[in-house]
């Protein structure tokens, strides 16, 4: 008597399972076609040279070429410089701001939060252009510096190798601090506020609270933001492309920008470009894994 019933139920769950697949298929197919298939294609292209009918298999040549490519290493060095300065300053600032905004005694919190977050609504191209114009030799920043007597005459920030790097790092910090702050603010709301009050009653200063409660409790979130920020740095494109165009010389060129130039400027070299792109992907994947591992073991 029980048998037919059981059979029917099995069919029902099978049917449901099938419907489940139906629900997720469009998204998965799109990801395969527009993400995983291109990765395989990038790998294949990276061991070829030439284009159209003149495609040749060159094995690892494109990858070997990377080691002797001075411009690529300049781009790598630039990216490291950005990461080393931008990530700690930005995340430190974001942490301090989040801790302040988590304090119940602070008024107008919502207003401050909104204002601090506002830069994150801007398109990367838009803010790159604004910073470019602001830091021009005859721009508003030089103007203010001269009026306040700090500078005698306008300084060509974007024409100076370190000046351009400085402006770029500053603009990145400006654009992304509020974004990271939101992560910390959310992380902090998950921490029981009584913990802070208890520490204050015990006589802890706000500095001590920050060091001994905020940072340890936020560790997973901090790790997440470090990964995101480093990842973002490695993929920097819109800003260098529009703010400094990689210049002066190659003083600010980023890895992504270089990959783009190899592929789409003057003589296109898809093979070599794909080799760098593929290597970048591997580096990012490894970095994420290492950072996640480091986060696991230190807990």
């Amino acid at each position: 008597m029980n048998l037919p019933k059981k059979r029917k139920r099995l069919l029902l769950s099978q049917k449901q399972n099938l419907i489940g697949w139906m629900f997720l298929m469009p998204a998965v197919v799109l990801i395969i076609v527009f993400m995983f298939y291109p990765i395989v294609q990038a790998l294949i292209t990276s061991i070829q040279s030439g284009s159209g009918v003149k495609i040749k298999w060159v094995g690892m040549k494109n990858y070997q070429r990377m080691f002797e490519d001075k411009k690529l290493w300049t781009a790598v060095k630039n990216t490291l410089i950005y990461a080393v300065w931008q990530v700690p300053i930005m995340l430190g600032l974001a942490l301090v701001l989040a801790a302040i905004l988590n304090n119940k005694k602070i008024k107008f919190k919502a207003v401050f939060r909104t204002l601090l977050f506002l830069p994150c609504t801007m398109s990367l191209v838009a803010y790159a252009i604004i910073f470019k114009l602001m830091f021009a030799t005859n721009g508003i920043v030089n103007d203010l510096l001269i009026k306040s007597g700090i500078l005698g005459k306008g300084f060509n920030f974007l024409g100076d190798a370190w000046g351009a790097k400085f402006v770029l790092i500053l603009s990145l910090i400006w654009r992304w601090t509020g974004y990271n702050m939101i992560f910390y603010v959310t992380g902090l709301t998950n921490i029981d506020y009584a913990l802070f009050e208890a520490a204050q009653i015990d006589g802890a200063s706000s500095g001590q609270c920050f060091r001994h409660i905020t940072i340890p409790m936020l560790k997973p979130v901090i790790l997440l933001t470090v990964i995101m920020a480093t990842n973002g740095n490695l993929q920097l494109f819109d800003e260098t492309f529009n703010l400094t165009a990689g210049g002066p010389g190659n003083a600010t060129i980023s890895i992504s920008q270089y990959i783009y130039e190899v592929a789409f400027k003057s003589v296109p070299n898809f093979g070599y470009s794909c080799a760098i792109g593929f290597s970048l992907m591997i580096v990012i994947a490894m970095l994420v894994l290492v950072q996640m591992k480091a986060g696991d073991t230190s807990d």
Binding site: V28, I31, M35, Q41, A42, Y260, G277, M281
Partner: peptide, 22 residues
């Protein structure tokens, strides 16, 4: 499959732009 999809978060746009363009 979800785990594979999540791996996609690490893929930089610039790395797949050329195959997509082609």
């Amino acid at each position: 499959i979800m785990r594979f999809v999540l791996l996609g978060m690490m893929v930089p746009t610039i790395s797949i732009v050329i195959p997509l363009y082609k």
